[in-house]
Design a protein around this nucleic acid. Sequence first.
DNA 1: CATGAATGAGGTTTCATTCAT
DNA 2: AATGAATGAAACCTCATTCAT
Lengths: 225, 225, 225, 225
Amino acid sequence: MTGPSTTAASRPRASRGRIDKRQAILDAAFTVFAREGYANACVKAIAAEANVAKPTVYNHLSDKANLFRNAIEVAAETAQSENLAVVGRLAEPGDDLRAALQDVGLRLLRCYSSDRSWALRRLLYAEVTRFPDLLETVRGGVTTRVTGALADRLARLTLDGRLRMTDPAQAAEQFIALLTGPAEARSKFGTEQLPEEELRALAEGAVRTFLMAFGSPPAKTAEIQ
Amino acid sequence: MTGPSTTAASRPRASRGRIDKRQAILDAAFTVFAREGYANACVKAIAAEANVAKPTVYNHLSDKANLFRNAIEVAAETAQSENLAVVGRLAEPGDDLRAALQDVGLRLLRCYSSDRSWALRRLLYAEVTRFPDLLETVRGGVTTRVTGALADRLARLTLDGRLRMTDPAQAAEQFIALLTGPAEARSKFGTEQLPEEELRALAEGAVRTFLMAFGSPPAKTAEIQ
Amino acid sequence: MTGPSTTAASRPRASRGRIDKRQAILDAAFTVFAREGYANACVKAIAAEANVAKPTVYNHLSDKANLFRNAIEVAAETAQSENLAVVGRLAEPGDDLRAALQDVGLRLLRCYSSDRSWALRRLLYAEVTRFPDLLETVRGGVTTRVTGALADRLARLTLDGRLRMTDPAQAAEQFIALLTGPAEARSKFGTEQLPEEELRALAEGAVRTFLMAFGSPPAKTAEIQ
Amino acid sequence: MTGPSTTAASRPRASRGRIDKRQAILDAAFTVFAREGYANACVKAIAAEANVAKPTVYNHLSDKANLFRNAIEVAAETAQSENLAVVGRLAEPGDDLRAALQDVGLRLLRCYSSDRSWALRRLLYAEVTRFPDLLETVRGGVTTRVTGALADRLARLTLDGRLRMTDPAQAAEQFIALLTGPAEARSKFGTEQLPEEELRALAEGAVRTFLMAFGSPPAKTAEIQ
DNA sequence: CATGAATGAGGTTTCATTCAT
DNA sequence: AATGAATGAAACCTCATTCAT
């Protein structure tokens, strides 16, 4: 409900059908761009995928470049909300912190491993030099905010004495890195879907190392005595 | 070291000039592909960059696709030897393990952050769906071997009692992830060169976390005292 | 409704222009193919001859090959109807059979000797190995039907006692051969236009021989009586 | 004047190997031209077929056009001698003229139906507008001489009272036409090899009609009685 | 607003032909 | 004399984009 209404608000006189058609075009665009890459994708194919005529695409989104930008932005917003929703689960970690981190890690990996997420990442990597402004949108909007939200949670957990760290922002970055780095290498840049089991193992491995580094040491209490 | 000699050996009767021209074409190809992307790059530009006529490119490397493959492979081999050379430095870590790891980490980050390395990574991300076989070449040849070599070093250090870990392969993966993950995010997919200082900070941060997780405890005891 | 009639007249129906353009392209294609041969003809020249842009040619007829096929088919259909119309004249041969046959023979030779007919034949000869299906279209459609129609007429004339033959199909084949064989040799594969007089002589010669072989013998008239 | 010997004489210092190589190139050229057509055939393929390097082809035969001309001429000479040899058999027709004519007809059809003969004809048809001089060579050299030789034989047979005709040249043309016209139509421009049986039937049909037209009357007299 | 038709520009690839060895 | 290497020219085809309906 939240997304379309704002768009509709910015185009008050636009009919419902027009918005739908615009959405259909953007969806089709992302699908085709994901499959073919920016340069290889042709507007004709996008129009066909959206079941509209080619000039209709140009009516709604002036350019191929603009089409690309908007399609990417939509995809990035979707990814962002998914990721933020996952990180939000750390607000109530429950008693078993390890379990909570593993749960969040696994869910993040699932987001990260989805076809659309990989396609988005590939398109960004590929076109970052030709569309540098997309980085602000996506990197600023997605990664930064997700890392920031995670850092907030980690800071809170540190204040609660359940973690021990001096730089939650860095720790958040590193948590993400421990999760996604190995996944990236193993999934062959997203061309092979990792099985759920492997995702779970990767999450566990990342959390284990993360807690070895930043976990509040139970043994320490004893030592202190 | 092994590259040029074997290449020369495999084409013993070929004149020097032919080899040079082939190399020039491959270099030019990588340059242009890196700048324009695969689809956008045109063979004409590559030929111009290599100072040869267009058909000469086709004489040496049959296809645009083949040209791309070979250019990528050359770049990957270069990257691989650089990385392996850096990891090799861990063979004699000296007394200060932290310093040694930071040194290696910094050097790896420098490799990782070079323009050619980023270009290679971007091209791979962009074209992995159209050239799936490149992954075997590069991912198998570079990442796997570098991670493997690093794992060997870590295992040795563990045997020597200077680290503590159960799965050196995983630890190596995570070391790399801790180094490169944050660097990737910050350098905006390689479009902005990170200053040496930031690289050093990233290396220190990665090594700090790595040692908190896998460091041998003696120092800790000392600290407690 | 009484509006600017000029616009409406120039394009009475939306599709009319399209059909015209398609015809123009096919005509131009045949002209250029006839002049240059299939391989030598370039689509650019065809587009120029048709006064359209090159991609328009590709919009209407997908391929160079398809363009060729269609152009040939149109030309073959034209040739076929011309030939059939001529053969049809034998339906009412009048009193003087020899004159009627000579008339038909001469008209067939004129068709056969037209520039377009020769061009069609040359293109077929030249490209039969690369477009084997064209033979079915043309040979099946033109030669077979024309020979068949002629055979029908000859059979009828035989039933009427004005000719004498056992195999009208063969006789038709031979009539065509007697006409066209010598013409082919003399016109230098159609590169030199035979003068009307020579055509007439060829027709007379062919009919003379044909009647010597298949004519009903004058004596017979006596016998019948 | 006839060919190979003068060529050898005009290159007195040439070694045997050189001539052989030239022959090999011309053979290869005809093979490739026959398969691909003039425009489609590339010199590289001809060189490969002849097992020589491309510049060698240019050394021996200056041009692609010249290469074509010479290859065609060689093939035409071969065809000519074959045909003349067949026609020569009519010098001693024996007692059964019909059998002799059928024999010659069948043999001519065999020549006419050979792959090389068809290829030659197709190439001539295809390129006659671009190489008009070839017609003089081939048409003048082959068809004219063969028809002429046949006309001589027919004239002699007429003088001997075994045939009856006023224009042996025309009769010869028509004999050839009756043979080859139907064969051309049925063999689909030489793309399908006619079985020996059909060749025989065609020859018989042609001879039957020919004799009905030009046969000496004695038999007729008998029939009338 | 949506669409069929048209186009100018540009890309990959092939080929005939010539040097330098 | 024979060859590997190099090149200028040109062909087929595709695409982003714009009119006219």
